[in-house]
């Protein structure tokens, strides 16, 4: 095995390795967190964020317009403070509603933005005033049971 053959094979090997990395990066993954598009940040407060995580998508009309950047707890208002990074191409009115929704029935949670009608748009650092918290399963179940119990009581009362 002379030198030039070795060099050839090593060159092929390294090129193939990089090609594999490139393949993984482009075809298998997405460049979401590496996006170089300009963005702006807005905040929203929620009573309960449920299973929302950092890097979860922010969608409007089902299209991804941004990502969750940070989630914190406000010790004074006892609410969750969610910071969102939005693509600067998409602007939303000040009276936009932010809701925590679930994709599918048991899927991951994301923030959905429903645009309002205000003429003034949200700027970097603004806060989304209207929010709707996540649906917590336990609350849903206890509410359902409570409703069922109330219904049963009513029927019982009616019979009397």
């Amino acid at each position: 095995m002379n030198r030039s053959t070795i060099d050839l094979w090593v060159g092929i090997f390294v090129a193939a390795g990089f090609a594999a990395l490139l393949f993984l990066a482009l075809k298998a993954g997405n460049l979401a967190t590496f996006s170089t598009t300009q963005s702006y940040q807005v905040q929203a407060k929620f009573a309960n964020i449920g299973g929302l995580k950092v890097r979860a998508p922010v969608k409007s009309a089902g299209v991804v317009v941004g990502r969750i950047a940070d989630i914190r707890f406000d010790n004074e208002s006892y609410e969750a403070v969610v910071s969102m990074t939005l693509d600067e191409h998409y602007t939303f009115p000040r009276d936009t509603t932010a809701k925590i929704l679930t994709s599918g029935i048991l899927g991951e949670q994301y923030v959905g933005l429903e645009a309002g009608g205000d003429g003034v748009m949200l700027k970097n650092g603004d806060r989304v005033r209207l929010t709707q918290s996540a649906v917590v399963l336990e609350n849903l179940i206890s509410q359902f049971l409570f409703n069922k119990a109330a219904e049963g009581n009513e029927k019982g009362n009616e019979k009397k």
């Binding site: 993984l24 990066a25 298998a28 993954g29 997405n30 979401a32 967190t33 590496f34 890097r55």
Partner: peptide, 12 residues
């Protein structure tokens, strides 16, 4: 689905 779930920075 793969592209949506695999993140360059976080996973790769």
């Amino acid at each position: 689905q793969m592209q949506a779930a695999v993140d360059l920075q976080h996973d790769i």
